[in-house]
Design a protein around this nucleic acid. Sequence first.
DNA 1: AAACTAACTGAACATATGTTCAGAAAAAAG
DNA 2: CTTTTTTCTGAACATATGTTCAGTTAGTTT
Lengths: 195, 195
Amino acid sequence: MARTQGSHSDITGPRIREAALRLFAQHGFAAVSMRQIASEVGVQAGALYNYTADKQSLLFSLMQGHMSDLMEAWQAEPSTGNALSALERFVRFHIRYHMERPDAVFIAYMELRNLSEENFATIESMRGGYENALEAILKQGVAEGAFQIPDTKIATLAVIAMLNGVMTWYRAGGRLSLEEVETIYWDMVRKAVAA
Amino acid sequence: MARTQGSHSDITGPRIREAALRLFAQHGFAAVSMRQIASEVGVQAGALYNYTADKQSLLFSLMQGHMSDLMEAWQAEPSTGNALSALERFVRFHIRYHMERPDAVFIAYMELRNLSEENFATIESMRGGYENALEAILKQGVAEGAFQIPDTKIATLAVIAMLNGVMTWYRAGGRLSLEEVETIYWDMVRKAVAA
DNA sequence: AAACTAACTGAACATATGTTCAGAAAAAAG
DNA sequence: CTTTTTTCTGAACATATGTTCAGTTAGTTT
């Protein structure tokens, strides 16, 4: 046997990425073998190497894809007037966007140590760009006199950490809707930075 | 060769745990081999099995030890009067305690998925106990009228997530002292739950 | 229909893994 | 000093790992 019926790189490629994403998120990068990924796709391990140079490149590509999708989605959000409404939009966007792709988010936060030094620097720089978007809002709010924040860098990281905490407990279909969760978190963030 | 000079279980046992803790935190449980741990201690891999039944038990024991130390340390804190001062003590305690043992904390949050179902339940239950301590304070504050919190369970998780974020960026000897960091976070938490 | 290309198999390679255990040496007990 | 116990070695076991590649077939082009 060799090439299988209906095989096509436009299909197999994405399927490999989806399987890898799910498995890495579930068991961790180091605990997942290339054979497991291949088996999930219905293919032999060797076939994966038509789509990635090696295992680490696959991880890096997934993380990079997630980060650039995130940046793009945020930049597509309409820009705003005052800092308060910008902050609300950021909070709601962040929660909603992250809850819709928990596996990618999980990997982007948990598997950094499995990246080579060079790949790590790339991902960290992208994350820095996203954090800067929030910090710019906080700085604007301080300038406007709407926020009272001793250190905008720390506040940025604190807000993001708090929002990311949603993913540890929220499950769709629970007792709260995503809209309600957004509102609860927005309430806390708003008060935390208030003047 | 067999037993080495000066070998003693009272010394080797802790050294194995220390090496495993550091290596698991640095590279992840799945990425660290028993031979690496043994080599760090200066012993052959087989010797580790005098101190642990298997690799998973070693991880579980480290996590369990951390969680019970944490609970004990919190219970040793003097109890307090009003909710506001209790919350301040919790925030400062949490930041300080966690910053002093980053490896153990990191493992306890990152390696949950490498636990068996049974061991996972045990650790999660201990974590729940710690979270309940914070939620009790928040509930007290609501009862006193000092706090305004729509959902104390969510607020509990949000506060802890925010505080845990410290560990992703704080390094001793940086531009801020631990005391200053505590104060900045306490300021945000206080405002976030304020009535 | 023939020639070409893209996609995949299956086996192989070298190496790493967790774990077990008989035996040896150091330490402790008598 | 002799015996017993504790602690460790070194080799072995079965299995798993990431990766390569010659060969084979499905799909595409001419």
